[in-house]
Design a protein around this nucleic acid. Structure first.
Lengths: 180, 180
DNA sequence: TTGTCACATGTTATTCTATTGCAAACAATG
DNA sequence: CATTGTTTGCAATAGAATAACATGTGACAA
């Protein structure tokens, strides 16, 4: 059985700099192989998304991009996001209107997401059992499945270890800063 | 085993007038029992949603409400929707930014939605197998589930029966008008 | 080298979705 | 009647995404 966890929750040992460069390398490689043009803007947007390692809003990306790229406007971001989605390099989280890096761009997949409502961390699964059960249940209704949106909200293991009322103080930290 | 289909796809025999009045009666009853105030606006919004019997956008509802209620503004609609969501009388479809009547408001539930991308018809399931499998898979990651968003896009049985390129002519009809 | 074509980006405006904040109206209760 | 909590009215604004058209750029062939 293959590993059905594409992006696990980050552990204490997570080397984030390495994580970003690895993801970028995979992206470069995949685009090269497919003849897709990972331009400067597109590359930079992907890098900004991976740097955060949590769901990022389009206008947050726009603000960041503007700091280094005067003239960036909403279409700049949305075009880059569309490209990255089409290439399977990121996923869109519907319930958050946000985008997150895909941990396994090697093959197109739907993904199922575990979203921590305390720290915003997201783990990505690509679980055949889930996909197949949904397809099966749909088929019982005579329904043909093209796409599945599966987003599970709750509390990640790290946050469960923290007493409920506890507040970490800085609510703008990234997941790794708050969740251990 | 209980019936896990809350709102099936509409059949030819669907009596839509009856369907709406039934849904309204259930809503009245549930609100009365819970001491929730189903005011004129809230009742009317619910009725508008059920009348369409497919996912409806907030601003569509606003337009309709304005025709009979001058002074209706975005907050008017969103407050009504918030109330109806809180009472479990409607569901929100995240992937469409739209709202749909709940076929079984008797108990709170998550719901899994089959969304036809041809005719917009939606069937609602409340399937324990799906819910439990997702909870199980999440638990394997140490994740505690509070909420599940499950939206399945594809082609409903009625539309599958229609040759692919066929267009029914009037794309603004309701699902029942087009899907048989 | 130049022309051409496809693709990518710049630019401005607009549409769609949703919330905030405060005032006025209303309904239930003592 | 007075009080209290809830609901609605109203104006403004925030947030998410797209449309339409102009301009730039890179690869390839003539």
């Amino acid at each position: 059985m293959t590993d059905q966890i594409v992006t696990p929750f980050r552990s204490e040992s997570h080397n984030h700099k390495r994580c970003v460069t690895d993801a970028m390398a995979l992206a470069e490689e995949r685009c090269a192989r497919r003849g897709a043009r990972l331009t400067r803007i597109r590359r930079r947007v992907l890098e900004l998304i991976w740097s955060r390692h949590e769901p990022v809003k389009a206008y947050d990306l726009l603000d960041q991009l503007r700091e280094e790229h005067r003239g960036a406007a909403p279409p700049t971001i949305y075009r880059a996001l569309d490209f990255l989605l089409a290439e399977g390099l990121i996923h869109r989280i519907e319930s958050l209107n946000a985008y997150i890096g895909c941990g396994d761009p090697s093959h197109p997949h739907l993904g199922q997401f575990l979203i921590c409502e305390r720290c915003n961390a997201v783990a990505e699964m690509d679980d055949d059992d889930i996909r197949d059960l949904l397809a099966h249940k749909a088929a019982l209704q005579g329904f043909h499945v093209n796409w599945q949106t599966i987003e599970i909200n709750g509390v990640c293991p790290s946050c469960r270890a923290i007493p409920n009322g506890t507040v970490s103080g800085n609510e703008t930290d990234t997941p790794a800063d708050r969740c251990r």
